[in-house]
C-alpha cells in the first residue's frame, strides 16, 4: 500500500522517486517505481535479486538516465542533473561493487572526499576536519594507514560510508552496506545508522540482511520486477502477502510441510555474515534473500 500523500513545497520529502522507468533494450529494469525517503529516517529498499534495486540507486544518484519519470531531491527536480551536482546538493552513496580508491590509504580516502566536498579551497589547502574521528565513528580507525585495496570487504564498505560522511550529506544511499560484516559489526552498524538518522539525515538502504532491515528501518519499500509492490513499516511488510510471494517464489505445488522446514531464514542468516564477498566478484553479488521474518505455513498462502 503505497503512501505518498505529501504536499509539495516546504514539507516535500527529502527524496522522491516519481514513476521512474528504466529500460535496457526490451528489458524493463525499473517499472514506474514511485517511493519516497524522508529526512531523519532509515528507509529500506528490498526485493529479490534482479528486482531493479541497484538500477534505482543509479537513477537516484545520476549514474543512469531514466527512460521516463522524475527524481526530486530536497524539493527540486534533479532528474537531469549530473552526478556531482546532486552530490553538492547533499546526496552521498556507496556501491555494491566497491569503489574505494584502492591505491590511497584508508585515511586518505576519507580526506580526499572531504577535500572534494570543500571544492576549490579543498584542492589547495588540506581541510581541518577531524578525519580520524570520522574513521573512529564508523569503526575502522584500526585500518587508517592501510591501503584501501588491502582491507576486508566489510571494512571497505564502512570506508565508503565514512567517505560519504566526510561530505556531510543530507541523504545517504547505501547499497548492501552490511555484506561482509560479522554479527557484532552488523549490530554496531545498525546503531550507527540510527545515530545518523537521529542527526536528521535521510538514509535509503538496499540490504539483504533482514534482521538489520527489520531492526533499523522506519519504512520499507519492496521492489519486485521493477515496481514497488509494498511500502510500510517493518511489521506490515513482514505480514504483506504480496511480499511473501515475491520472496518465496510463486509455485504453490510444494507441500506445506516442506515450507515449515524452510521458513527459518532469519535465525540462520547470521552464519553467513562472516562470508567475504569478494571485490570484483560481480556475479557473486547474486543474492539469496533472507526470509522476511519467520514465516509460518499460514503466512505463505
Amino acid at each position: 500500500m503505497p503512501d505518498h500523500q505529501h504536499v509539495a513545497g516546504a514539507d516535500a520529502p527529502l527524496l522522491e522517486v516519481d514513476h521512474v522507468v528504466v529500460q535496457f533494450g526490451g528489458v524493463t529494469a525499473v517499472n514506474e517505481a514511485t517511493f519516497v525517503a524522508e529526512a531523519g529516517t532509515v528507509t529500506g529498499l528490498i526485493g529479490p535479486n534482479g528486482a531493479g534495486k541497484t538500477t534505482c540507486f543509479n537513477v537516484i544518484s545520476g549514474l543512469q538516465k531514466p527512460t521516463r519519470g522524475k527524481v526530486r531531491f530536497r524539493g527540486r527536480n534533479v532528474t537531469g542533473a549530473p552526478v556531482h551536482r546532486r552530490s553538492k546538493r547533499g546526496m552521498g552513496r556507496t556501491f555494491q561493487r566497491l569503489e574505494a580508491f584502492g591505491s590511497l590509504s584508508v585515511r586518505d580516502n576519507v580526506r580526499v572526499a572531504h577535500d572534494i566536498h570543500r571544492g576549490l579551497a579543498g584542492l589547495v589547502r588540506p581541510g581541518a576536519k577531524d578525519i580520524d574521528a570520522l574513521l573512529e565513528r564508523v569503526g575502522i580507525s584500526a585500518y587508517a594507514d592501510e591501503r584501501a585495496d588491502s582491507i576486508p570487504t566489510g571494512t571497505a564498505r564502512l570506508l565508503e560510508l565514512a567517505r560519504c560522511l566526510a561530505g556531510d550529506p543530507k541523504l545517504l544511499l547505501l547499497d548492501e552496506p552490511s555484506s561482509g560484516l560479522d554479527e557484532t559489526e552488523t549490530d554496531d552498524f545498525g546503531d550507527l545508522l540510527r545515530d545518523l538518522a537521529a542527526e536528521g539525515r535521510g538514509i535509503l538502504m538496499v540490504e539483504h540482511d533482514m534482521d538489520l532491515v527489520m531492526g533499523v528501518c522506519d519504512t520499507i519499500h519492496v521492489l519486485d520486477f521493477g515496481s514497488i509492490i509494498a511500502s510500510g513499516a517493518p511489521g506490515e511488510i513482514r505480514r504483506d502477502p504480496a511480499v511473501q510471494r515475491a520472496y518465496l517464489g510463486y509455485s504453490d505445488e510444494v507441500p506445506e510441510h516442506e515450507l515449515a522446514g524452510a521458513g527459518v531464514g532469519v535465525s540462520a542468516v547470521e552464519e553467513t555474515r562472516t562470508d567475504l564477498v569478494p571485490v570484483g566478484a560481480a556475479s557473486d553479488a547474486t543474492t539469496v534473500i533472507p526470509a522476511v521474518g519467520a514465516t509460518t505455513p499460514e503466512d505463505v498462502r
Binding site: S61, G62, L63, P82, V83, H84, R85, S87, K88, M91, G92, R93, F95, E99, A100, F101, G102, S103, L104, D108, N109, R111, V112, A113, D115, I116, H117, G119, G122, L123, V124, R125, P126, G127, E160, R163, C164, G167
Partner: peptide
C-alpha cells in the same frame, strides 16, 4: 602529497566514486 594529488589518484582509481562525492571531473 597534497590534496590535489590525492584527488588525482582518486580520480584514476574510481571516477564513479569521485562523481558521487561531488567532483566535476
Amino acid at each position: 602529497r597534497g590534496p590535489l594529488g590525492r584527488v588525482l589518484i582518486a580520480m584514476r582509481d574510481s571516477p564513479a566514486a569521485c562523481g558521487t562525492l561531488g567532483l566535476d571531473m
